[in-house]
Amino acid sequence: MQSLSLSSTKSLAGLRLLGQDARLKRKSSIVVVACGGSSDSETPTSNSTSSFLSRTQTYALLKQQMEVAAKSEDYKEAARIRDSLRLFEEEEPVLRLRRLIKEAIADQRFQGVRVQVRSVYIEGRSQPSKGLYFFAYRIRITNNSDDTVQLLRRHWIITDANGRSENVWGIGVVGEQPVLLPRTSFEYSSACPLSTPNGRMEGEFEMIHVERVGSRSFNVVIAPFSLALLGDDDCNTI
């Protein structure tokens, strides 16, 4: 009886081993199939990445060509390439997203106040042979808050292509200290001469809540924007 029991035990153990071996084989076959499927799915991604890199390189090359044209004072060619770049940005989702992010960063918001800037090169008032480059810019201040605010003072930091900076302080803007009611805007235009073909401006507006008794003034920061022969990155008209 004991020998029969041992024999039965060995048989059962053998069956268990066969079952485990079969399960391992099934798992192995599943892994092989999964790997094969993964390999097939990677091909379109690789092609897509290669295509994007090619478009990015083309975009970078166009920007270099535009800079060369601007430095050689071939403004007509530079403007043509600039227009091509803008079309390229609209057609390429990633580049368009980058531009939108840049715009969002440039549109600084402080306590519900938003400042937007557009700049343009004024060729008629410039004299490159004498080192005079004249730029105009248009400012739009929007009060998106529920409070009435007033612009008290301005501060600009103007930097040319050689890194020389000048600080300009003043009361209000264009002779006014505008009051902005809730959900309203104020726009004005001004100008800035430079001794180099390009540069940048940045600064801040000091403002106050008109209807808050004893309230402190607050500063609305204006992100750097370009002064360039081709206009700023967003718009070349005032």
Rank of each mutant, 00 (worst) to 15 (best):
N198S: 15
I105A: 06
D74K: 10
R99H: 04
F134T: 05
E77A: 06
E91A: 13
I157K: 07
E90H: 10
K10I: 12
L152C: 08
N162Y: 06
A223K: 13
V115P: 00
V117G: 00
T56G: 02
A228G: 09
A70V: 12
Y137D: 05
S54A: 14
L18D: 12
P44M: 07
S129K: 13
N162W: 08
Y121C: 01
Q2K: 14
I139N: 00
S50T: 11
S38L: 14
A69D: 04
T237E: 09
S145L: 04
S72Q: 14
Y121V: 04
V221K: 07
P128D: 04
N167I: 10
S50W: 11
L62V: 03
D21K: 12
V179W: 01
Q57Y: 06
S7M: 11
L61M: 09
E166F: 13
A106D: 01
G231D: 02
S189Q: 15
K10H: 12
V174C: 07
I122K: 05
M201Y: 00
A13T: 07
S215C: 11
S185W: 10
S5Q: 13
V117K: 01
D21Q: 15
S41K: 13
P44H: 08
E123Q: 14
V149F: 02
T56C: 07
S190I: 03
K71Q: 13
F186Y: 15
L229S: 01
L24V: 10
A69Q: 02
G112M: 03
R16C: 06
W169I: 12
V213Q: 12
E90D: 15
P182H: 03
A60G: 05
A223G: 00
Q57A: 15
A161S: 11
P128I: 10
E92F: 06
S48M: 14
Y121A: 01
Y188D: 01
S7D: 09
S48N: 09
E103L: 13
